[in-house]
Design a protein around this nucleic acid. Structure first.
Lengths: 191, 191
DNA sequence: TTGGTTACGTGACCTAGATCACATTCTTTT
DNA sequence: AAAAGAATGTGATCTAGGTCACGTAACCAA
């Protein structure tokens, strides 16, 4: 499936757009291809776009004291990612986004999103629901953080996204779970 | 300021509604008063409404193993709260909401929200932005959880909401920070 | 193919914060 | 104002997970 069809199918789940409206909507997106390891957003950058993942896997992460990395999100096909704090508040990025694998994304600028939201009630509806889901997922993750130990959080993650196990290196999974790679490694040993 | 004016001023920051439109919008809200300690939502309940806080302070919390409490949110005037997971996915509540102080809220049903969003593009716009802010705040809190020790998180919280220090008991602040009350108490001792 | 970089495993030790136990104060209720 | 119940402080101990150190295996790139 092409990028356009993927986006169309994705949007259709929550918003109703005519073929013509969707074409217009889609015309605001720019496709970009990245190689494994390439950087999309660096801390300190001005952030102007958000990204819809068509293929591959990205990570959005925070680096503390130039040493420790915490992964906020693994972004897989049909997921959206950006530094939303920077994007909405017009500040520079505090997080980084790069490619765990080769990836194709569709890029939508902040101003185009706002324009499209204004022009089409259904587009505004779509983005409300998308953010809603993100908010609910984020609350769940926060709760899991407070309530569960590493082992449970690891099992929970693999339960939700089994493909991660083979797709991303273990030390990145550790960085998502907020533990050291050594601790994660020991978990697997004792099963 | 009355409940109506508070809501009107709150909405006006992100959405433009005529006086008449706002009156209609407001007619879907039911005011309710609660006493300190009263429960608004219990885990297991069917959740039908979300709540706009007019006065007082609520807490939204999760109870684990009937023992430990984790506070997801302190809800103060102009904040919205509910079990959004239950509300949007039509499942029963997994979290509880009750009153830390006497409180007045405005209650909006899920179906009325969706109806109003459909009827007024501006209302949909408002709810998109509200959720957006919530999402960004939730991401920040998650990051703070991974990145900071208890002391820093405590200072961060009091920096953002100084009024909490006198308003809510320390063991609830501990439950928000995800630490034991003893640890929080010791933090204060050593300054 | 070989040398360098990145990923992963594992032992030894350390520390932030949890848990348990009990004392003290502050609030309600009567 | 007294009694009961919350909220808080603080010592003694315990433990999940971090840190450091080192070894091995896998994956490139030249």
């Amino acid at each position: 499936m092409g990028a356009k069809e993927l986006l169309q199918e994705h949007i259709a789940k929550t918003a109703v757009l005519t073929e013509k409206e969707f074409d217009y909507f889609f015309s605001h997106f720019s496709p970009i291809s990245f190689k494994k390891g390439q950087t999309i957003v660096s801390a300190g950058d001005h952030v102007d776009c958000e990204y819809f993942v068509v293929s591959g896997c990205l990570k959005a992460f925070f680096i503390n004291d130039e040493i420790k990395m915490y992964i906020l999100q693994f972004a897989m096909p049909t997921w959206w990612t950006s530094d939303y704090n920077a994007l909405y508040n017009q500040t520079t990025a505090t997080i980084n986004i790069d490619c765990i694998t080769d990836a194709e994304v569709l890029c939508l600028s902040n101003s185009d999103r706002e324009k499209l939201c204004k022009e089409f009630h259904q587009v505004e509806h779509f983005f409300r629901w998308r953010t809603n889901k993100g908010y609910i997922a984020s609350q769940k993750r926060l709760l899991s953080f407070m309530n569960n130990n590493v082992k449970k959080r690891y099992e929970e993650l693999l339960g939700l996204y089994p493909q991660l196990y083979n797709l991303v290196p273990k030390h990145l999974i550790a960085a998502y779970l907020g533990v050291s790679r050594e601790t994660l490694s020991r978990l697997q040993a004792h099963k």
